[in-house]
């Protein structure tokens, strides 16, 4: 999967939970889920469950701890896919 494909998949996953349309439209690796997209923290749990389902991976709590941005989510997905 290319970087662009991965970003596109993550973008589809977070879409239902975002509260800042402008930041969503400009989503990049550097976008922060909470500060930029204004995703509420309860919905961050949904994002994590959706990422697990989409990529068929399991995200442990230690990984979840740093999953606050698009970049971090990409790193975690790539690590988990490589372990498969």
């Amino acid at each position: 999967m290319t970087k662009e494909e991965l970003i596109a998949k993550l973008k589809t996953i977070v879409q239902p939970y975002i509260q800042n349309e402008e930041a969503f439209n400009n989503l990049s690796e550097n976008t922060d889920f909470i500060n930029d997209l204004k995703i509420n923290s309860a919905n961050l749990v949904d994002v994590i469950l959706d990422v697990e389902d989409e990529f068929d991976i399991r995200i442990e709590n230690d990984d979840m701890e740093r999953m606050v941005s698009v970049k971090a989510a990409m790193d975690i997905v790539n690590e988990k896919l490589a372990e498969k």
């Binding site: 309860a42 949904d46 469950l49 979840m64």
Partner: peptide, 18 residues
């Protein structure tokens, strides 16, 4: 916003576990 927080949510147990 979080249907999985409900006991009858599809992913309720996974939500609780996280």
């Amino acid at each position: 916003d979080s249907p999985d927080s409900y006991p009858d949510g599809k992913r309720h147990l996974r939500f609780l576990e996280k």
